[in-house]
Design a protein around this nucleic acid. Structure first.
Lengths: 213, 213
DNA sequence: CAATCTTTGTGCACGCGTTCACAAAGACAT
DNA sequence: ATGTCTTTGTGAACGCGTGCACAAAGATTG
């Protein structure tokens, strides 16, 4: 029986082995003392807990470049997601195949959601259309929304929204890039604009808490 | 002179006003006691610290659906990012206009990066090509990489990589969706599969620490 | 100019998550 | 069967970030 120890997994993942064992114990995944965790059982437990063993039908609304990219993205199927439908407001798109699936018109939205028991919707429309689409999704029974449109959606209680802003990640890179440049300049004896007057150091001594590492 | 107090900002952002003041004090942004912060100066300070006032030329490699979506994304320009070039390995794409800009062939990669002083690269290629593209970017002088390809990139020290996995956000939604369903079932007296044997509760009592809220 | 009022900047304490460290459990060898 | 060795599961301690609370600063008013 193939097994792994918490120590091996921790080293591979770069985390503390005790934390890993605590997290596993939360799942109720019993390991065997002196041996480790049964790999197969562990994979199953984690998959189940994360919802990977379930079938999650999702609809993608707004089949522009981003919507098409999402429809073609291979990572969904392997994680239990099934693209139930591609929906777009443009009548010219209707019937057009994207990722081997015909695009359907927004008029069909409610019917599609009810017929497929969809509870997760992806919004990849322009910002202007997002709120309206959101409301129709929610009214039709969707309770989780992944929003790629650059707008903050307002939803009733009980509905989860996650907003993905593609430029935020770039922002973070630029922030670090800037401080790389600043450090070099400092090493050269030039005062960098950013660190010109470090009035006070943050709690971690360098990076403000609001900025992800 | 228009001003804001930390209290107002904190209420608007839904955070603690003391934390907000601490973060501001890190920036060296002096407020005026009894008055608050000068809005204009504050905006400038934060923009500068975050790198929004700088010009960040970026290249996007891999102009498929996702690359095109990124090229068309409006949120970049307003945050100091300038798309210096779109690069693709397909010779048929070369010269084709995307987002009002001709796609250039991978052969030009090194020259483009050096000519434009690019230090940030975006990889939107298929998984198979990502590592190779990454190495060429790094060799040409790029020190920050935003990776959309579903692969873990290995890079030398001093190079930052941020990986964006579009399915992770869906995963998180599905996780919460699952526990919503579990709670309903529990309320109905049915034992949900997830919470069937909660051997041990996590530190926060419910959600394991590895799962974002 | 003195008194009062508002809001900042920050020391201090509390709480939470991570890590340490070890007893208990089970495998494996003798 | 007994002892040894490995690895789990978890209580306890440590450290860090968040929030409280207040003194200092400056504006504003009489």
């Amino acid at each position: 029986m193939p097994t792994v120890s918490s120590e091996e997994l921790a080293a591979a993942a770069g985390v503390n082995s005790a934390k890993l064992r605590k997290d596993f114990s939360y799942l109720g995944s019993y390991g065997t003392r002196g041996v480790g965790y049964d790999v197969e059982y562990l994979v199953y437990q984690i998959s189940r807990e994360l919802g990977l063993t379930q079938d999650w039908p999702v609809v993608i609304v707004g089949i522009g470049n981003l919507g098409a990219a999402l429809a073609n993205y291979g990572g969904f199927a392997s994680r239990g997601f099934r693209v139930a439908a591609l929906i777009d407001a443009d009548p010219a798109m209707a019937g057009k195949p994207v990722a081997g699936m015909p695009v359907q018109h927004t008029d069909e939205l409610e019917k599609i959601i009810e017929d497929n028991g969809v509870s997760i919707g992806v919004i990849a429309t322009p910002a202007g259309a997002a709120q309206q689409v959101c409301e129709r999704l929610v009214a039709a029974g969707v309770t989780s929304i992944l929003n790629f449109a650059p707008t903050v959606l307002s939803v009733p209680d009980g509905v989860d929204v996650r907003k993905v802003d593609l430029s935020i990640e770039l922002q973070i890179l630029a922030f670090h890039e800037q401080r790389k440049a600043g450090e070099e300049a400092a090493a050269d004896g030039v005062v960098p604009p950013v660190a010109a007057k470090p009035h006070r150091k943050g709690p971690d001594g360098d990076v403000p808490a609001v900025m992800p590492a």
